[in-house]
Nucleic acid binder design. Structure first.
Lengths: 300, 300
DNA sequence: TGGTAGGATAATATATTACTTATCATACAA
DNA sequence: TTGTATGATAAGTAATATATTATCCTACCA
């Protein structure tokens, strides 16, 4: 025989009222039901919890001690229930988002907007490159990730939500800056600045090149979009970058797009999570927010 | 549907091992039994507690929170059980003893001896007169009381354990100090110093007098045995007192016993508690100790 | 590309719970 | 002394809890 929560609940009521009948009323039970619950609890702990002296009921020392524990346990259950209810709502809890570094250029904006709508949600943003993001996805760290091409090895649910055009960019004074409809081949003797291996942009670029049977004469590898943009600006070479990362530089005239045939490389951004993942309502809501935002963008 | 302790226990095991099968082994159950318990808990809180990503299992945020509560609740139950076990032993807990002031002359000795045998027991001794002791008995304050004649109005279990002879005492230079087999009548014109109403000694004396159809010429009422003894010593009058209270004074020759017919008034000390009272093992043990001590005294 | 390990699900048996109503016992008060 | 309030106890019952075995599903690994 063992203790049940019901027993504690009934006991607690009796201990409070010091009356079986009152407790029965409070719990909407008959008095014998209450007597039995208390009796069973007494049996399972092996000590009387109450003593009846004349008409009055008193808690024994054991009853006194048990009451304390019963109250604490009850309180924990109540708090747990409340916390669970909060988790069910969209307006609470934690939301952990992993993004590929390129996404960062607009992820911050997305998160800010979402955070404004759901101020109580604690948001964590983790920015890394594609490869380490995939590792984190593997160990179930982020609730959701924003990335380019979803992996096909791993089992993920991915939904695309926005265009991610990749551009071939150069310094404004590049010799081909003004040319139209360049063949990729005409860039054969240029130096290409490329992202580190494991980067999604790098992968996309490599596929683009191999599609056109193209192999640049020389490449320089650099880690991070910012570093590469600076290198391009000072004339180190060309690069393939996501339009989102160079938006500012293009409009400021510090970089130019080369009008190469096959560009912009049309790709999409994806919001993804491992299949089997149980999205919290908050995560679900953020996912929807991202999808809606994507639709709004392409419509406007 | 509602949460059960079993559910929390099984959940806790799964949350610890992050494996249903391991948990099943630990709990000596089959794996489906574990799945069901967790599922039921999930249903009753309305949130998934685990998520399965590929082959691995992870706690959801809800699972993380619930685990904390489950552990705390489990801990409380464990502590409660341990405390109950301690209460079952004789060597722990509190023991509240109420004694009538006259008893105090040997109660201290009894308690000291008992305390030496059970050093962890927390003893509380409350010394008052008979009347207020009865009140305390009524409100169930002391575990046990030591007193003279048990009340017949109140429903108590009383067991006598020791002689309580009442003596008629006087100052050593009293005119009848040396007389033998005095008739009570011969003390008719003496002054009697009597205890306050509500005192057991007072009641016993009054009964003694009425049994012999005796009415002293004058009485002086005083509160407390000590005060009365001093009054007798200085020759204020005579008194009826329990032999236990005047032991020291008699042997020191500061008081003498008058050899009156009908004295010593034979009475007994009682250890008592309200019937219906659930004596703790400690209280039960003290009661037995008192009874044994009484037997030892009368035998020796 | 099977094989395997781990989990979900279904069907089912059994034990226990959580109640009920009816009745009895008793302390106290009128 | 009787009536009333309170609890204990007994018997019966419907619900449920807890487990089982059997089977299926699937991710992963060799």
């Amino acid at each position: 025989m063992h203790i049940t929560i019901r027993q504690l609940q009934v006991f607690e009521s009796v201990a409070r009222h010091l009356s079986y009948t009152r407790a029965a009323e409070e719990l909407h039970l008959t008095q014998p039901a209450v007597s039995m619950q208390v009796k069973q609890l007494e049996e399972s702990i092996g000590l009387p919890l109450f003593e009846q002296i004349g008409k009055k009921i008193y808690r024994t020392e054991a009853g006194e001690i048990m009451l304390g524990h019963a109250l604490t346990i009850h309180e924990h259950l109540t708090i747990a229930k409340r916390e669970m209810d909060e988790l069910k709502g969209v307006d609470s809890g934690r939301l952990s988002i992993g993004v590929v570094s390129t996404v960062n250029y607009f992820a911050a904006r997305l998160l800010a907007a979402f955070s404004r709508q759901h101020p109580k949600v604690e948001i964590r943003l983790d920015v890394t490159n594609r490869e380490s993001l995939l590792q984190k996805l593997e160990i179930n760290e982020p609730d959701l990730v924003l990335m380019g091409q979803p992996p096909n090895g791993l089992d993920v649910d991915a939904a695309d939500f926005m265009d991610n055009p990749l551009l071939l960019v150069a310094a404004p004074d590049h010799r081909l800056a003004k040319s139209k409809r360049l063949a990729l081949e005409s860039l054969a003797d240029e130096t290409f600045v490329v992202r580190e291996p494991g980067s999604g942009t790098r992968l996309a670029m490599e596929r683009f090149f191999s599609d056109y049977d193209f192999k640049p004469q020389s490449t320089v590898e650099m880690t991070g979009n910012e570093v590469i943009k600076q290198a391009i600006e000072v004339g180190l070479g060309l690069s393939v970058l996501s339009a989102h990362t160079v938006e500012l530089e293009l409009s400021a005239g510090r970089l130019v797009r080369l009008d190469v045939v096959g560009t912009p490389i049309i790709r999409r951004w994806y919001v993804a999570h491992r299949s089997g993942k149980r999205l919290t309502p908050t995560a679900q809501s953020f996912k929807q927010f991202v999808l809606d935002e994507g639709k709004r963008q392409s419509a406007g």
